[in-house]
């Protein structure tokens, strides 16, 4: 006996909740600027953006794409690392930086292609497919670096272009932030404005309906996972340029926060969809909280606890009034 009469209870969450994350961010800014005098200074804010936010933002943008398509990409960190590894190796081999960057992104595309094959080709759940990729990527890094030793670009021969990617500015704004802006606008246009974004939305929320409307479901998924890994590999290139080295497994540090940011970001949308502005707010919130806690004298360890609690509260906010997830 069908019970469809009984499930009319699904009500949209009150619109008030959409302001939860912006409000939390505002509150964080106000509280910390009162508690820590150095917090609301230009140099601190630029420092937070460059050091805490930029790389996390790029990885989170990649994550948002896959979350919007109804999945997750646990191997974003692997794409970061493989991008970094390919980039640094090519530079050490004496190739120009732009070719190295291209090879780095291609390494990301390769990682994405592997995921796409598993997810779109073999219909494996994204969570487990990308988990497998993560493991294989880990092995790959161990094998190429003799168990996880960093690979340094020799100090004497650092190309100027590499230093520019790592520390340069354009019009007074650090290059990393330009990159974040370009990627964010690009991803936002793709998800929110483009025809492809609509297809992603349909595939992510109602894959069956998408199929029954003639949409190329597999191709959409394949593209999303390739794009996600390619974007993540850009973060890998930035990291390497920053430290003139490839440090194995450094990408995984961004994984959990990027998932957190993408899901915190969904609370910004009336229909709880993954969206780029929300993700960026999530990244900012996490970045400013850890910076603020640092400035008021909490050590790194308590910052972890603080940001964990914060993610928890944000989730609570995002899920309150949501009754259709069970």
């Amino acid at each position: 006996m069908s019970l469809d009469i009984l499930d009319s209870r699904r009500t949209a969450a009150p619109d008030l909740l959409r302001f939860g994350v912006p409000l939390a961010l505002a509150l964080v800014l106000v509280v910390f600027s009162l508690l820590a005098p150095g917090f609301l200074t230009l140099s601190n804010i630029v420092g937070v953006l460059v050091n805490n936010v930029a790389l996390a933002a790029i990885v989170s943008i990649a994550m948002t794409l896959t979350v919007a398509s109804g999945g997750t990409d646990l191997s974003v960190g692997t794409a970061v690392d493989l991008g970094s590894l390919a980039f640094v190796s090519t530079i050490i081999a004496g190739q120009p930086v732009w070719i190295a960057a291209l090879i780095g992104v291609l390494a990301g595309v390769g990682t994405g292609l592997f995921n796409a094959l598993l997810i779109a080709g073999l219909s494996i759940t994204p969570f487990l497919a990308t988990l497998g990729t993560l493991f294989i990527g880990h092995s790959l890094q161990q094998l190429t670096t003799d168990g996880g030793n960093p690979v340094y670009v020799p100090t004497g021969s650092i190309p100027p272009a590499l230093a520019f990617i790592g520390h340069g500015s354009v019009l007074g704004v650090p290059l990393a932030l330009w990159l974040v802006a370009v990627l964010a606008i690009g991803a936002w246009l793709l998800l929110a404005k483009s025809r492809f974004g609509r297809e992603v939305l349909a595939v992510g929320t109602e894959p069956q309906v998408a199929l029954y409307s003639g949409l190329p479901v597999r191709a959409v998924l394949a593209f999303i996972y390739i794009a996600s890994a390619a974007i993540a590999s850009i973060a890998g290139i930035l990291i390497s340029a920053n430290v003139n080295a490839y440090v194995p497994y450094s990408g995984n540090a961004y994984l959990l926060n990027s998932i957190g940011a993408a899901f915190i970001g969904t609370s910004l949308s009336r229909t709880r969809r993954a969206n780029i502005p929300g993700t960026l707010l999530g990244v900012l919130l996490l970045g400013f909280v850890s910076n603020g806690l640092l400035l008021i004298g909490w050590n790194f360890y308590w910052q972890q606890v603080g940001s964990g609690l914060l993610i928890f509260l944000a989730l609570l906010l995002a899920f309150t009034g949501r009754r259709d997830t069970a």
Partner: peptide, 16 residues
């Protein structure tokens, strides 16, 4: 609280 297990336990993991 009906938070998705994936996310709830992720946050708890950070706290731990």
């Amino acid at each position: 609280l009906r938070i998705l297990p994936l996310l709830a336990t992720l946050a708890v993991m950070n706290i731990c």
